[in-house]
């Protein structure tokens, strides 16, 4: 996975921000490093333009960058992924897939703190249809595990589906200490072993507000695949360490469940829950988050992605794009 992750940064950015240069806004580079980065960046761009690597760049010409679908959660999810080019674009036969929804609160669907079970189920089923060997739905619960399982309803929705499993990550043995080579602050982290042995990572967050980070979407949600989340609050700058984490936990596909949007009081609620019946999908997890931010009112106000610090940092560091006005967006109403 690491190899796949490194490539799209340069390629999908059409050379505007070569690998890691713009991101080092705190670090001073020596000339040799600077040249090295630029050489690498230029190579990737050249290769990308020639179509050698990153086949999806050529596909991307036909399919949109971001899809916004309004409708029933299950149908909207399916439609959104289809419009992006279908699940086969992300999942190859025999792949292991990890889906990261929100299911860490012992609260019912109405609270808007957990992902809609039908969204998760649909993604999982589509992965299997695309030939995935195994689909693991994982989260690190904050409340009592059994209560989270019961109230989030995701396990119940995936019950009996062959090759699809829903598990809660609580034991430290399920995580492995992992170096984050592209990180700035948090140079290593204990990351779910299942992710490290999987080919595909799919973010399936519910759209919700967050008192610290503005919103909790695909990027912030990846904290559920990390063992020690508290250290990100305690030792590091939270926003920057989220980006550090996402350099490793970069979703290949992000499907944001905005069937309900917790527009205030997040991430735990209670807050204002907006019934939006919308699903946002993109192969760029930052763009999916940015689009979601612009789509709904947060804390009663309109926000632009530029106001969300971890999204801005992600853009600067080349993880994805928040310049949503220049993205190819497809809107569908079912």
């Amino acid at each position: 996975m690491a190899g796949m992750l490194a490539l799209p940064k340069a390629a999908s950015f059409s050379g505007a921000i070569p690998n890691g240069v713009a991101s080092n806004w705190r670090q001073i580079m020596d000339r040799r490093q600077f040249l090295k980065y630029h050489m690498q960046g230029a190579l990737y761009v050249a290769a990308g333009a020639a179509g050698f690597i990153w086949p999806s760049t050529s596909l991307a010409k036909d399919s949109p960058d971001v899809v916004i679908v309004e409708g029933d959660p299950a149908k909207a999810t399916r439609a959104a992924v289809e419009r992006l080019g279908g699940m086969k674009k992300f999942v190859k036969a025999g792949d292991r897939v990890v889906i990261k929804p929100n299911m860490s609160f012992a609260q019912p669907l109405e609270a808007g703190t957990n992902t809609h079970p039908q969204v998760v189920r649909t993604i999982a089923v589509m992965c299997r249809e695309a030939g995935a060997k195994k689909v693991m739905v994982l989260d690190h619960p904050l409340h009592r595990e059994s209560e989270c399982v019961r109230l989030a309803g995701i396990q119940a929705a995936c019950q009996g589906l062959d090759g699809i499993e829903v598990h809660m990550l609580t034991s430290q043995r399920l995580f492995a200490n992992t170096k984050l080579p592209a990180a700035q602050e948090m140079l290593e982290s204990e990351i779910a072993r299942e992710v490290l042995r999987s080919e595909v990572l799919i973010a399936a967050p519910v759209a919700k507000s967050h008192a610290d980070t503005g919103v909790s979407l695909g990027m912030k949600g990846m904290m559920g695949l990390v063992y020690d989340r508290h250290i990100m609050h305690r030792r590091y700058n939270l926003d920057n360490s989220i980006v550090d984490m996402c350099t490793k936990l970069k979703a290949n596909l992000s499907v944001v469940d905005a069937s309900r949007v917790l527009t205030s009081g997040g991430p735990a609620g209670p807050g204002d829950v907006l019934l939006a019946d919308t699903v946002i999908a993109s192969s760029d997890m930052v763009a999916a988050d940015a689009t979601t931010v612009a789509l709904f009112p947060w804390y009663g106000k309109r926000k632009r992605p530029e106001e969300i610090e971890h999204l801005v940092l992600a853009h600067k560091r080349g993880l994805g794009r928040i310049d949503i006005d220049s993205l190819k967006v497809q809107k569908v109403k079912l």
């Binding site: 609260q107 019912p108 109405e110 609270a111 808007g112 309900r260 527009t263 205030s264 009081g265 735990a268 609620g269 209670p270 807050g271 204002d272 829950v273 907006l274 019934l275 939006a276 709904f296 009112p297 009663g300 309109r302």
Partner: peptide, 15 residues
């Protein structure tokens, strides 16, 4: 913690 009534938020456009 109580869950708010869905859609209770006055939003600029219709939900």
């Amino acid at each position: 913690k109580k869950q708010a009534e869905p859609g209770a938020l006055p939003v600029p456009s219709a939900p």
